[in-house]
Amino acid sequence: MKRIAKYGMLVLAAMLVGFPLGYFYSQRTVGKGSNILSQTYALSEYETLANLQYKQADPLHASRAQLDLLNFMQQLQAKQKIEIPRALDYDRARVIMRLALLEENAGNKEKSKQYILEAQESLKDADHKTYSEEQLRTFVRRLMPNLIFEIFDCCNRIIKGRPSWSRL
């Protein structure tokens, strides 16, 4: 009887040690996956709406939507741990370049240059390379500048079974 009690206590004590280990391990694994999922879903929807505005709306509304998307990305980066930081940097560069093109079309050359510099900085954060203005223009036109972005985009579509917003 004494033996059973002893082993029972042992199992209980070991369970108490095992519980936090399992809990924190899940936070690091499942939690990370869930963060990726929620950030991907939220960004995808925000980008879908903002980019529909970019392609379909007048310059004022298009610009407003891009600025709002940029604001969302900045707040996301400030408030949460970004699980796919490079993808976010690429996305941000693309949004900034779109703003640059909108400003250029509106005749605001100075502001457009400023946005191009910001886009270059964002891409530098992503892969430590400096892209020329021409490359950035191609980046916005073609949308998928390199393999990493294509992989991310492809995964996004596979996970969610939906097309990239860039095809809208």
């Binding site: 199992v11 209980l12 070991a14 369970m15 519980f19 936090p20 280990l21 399992g22 899940s26």
Partner: peptide, 21 residues
């Protein structure tokens, strides 16, 4: 018994957190 307890505790902790997430 310690190993069994650890495994059960780990499993319960993992499941609890995973369900929350």
């Amino acid at each position: 018994f310690v190993a069994i307890g650890l495994a059960i505790g780990f499993g319960i902790g993992y499941a609890t957190s995973s369900l929350n997430i």
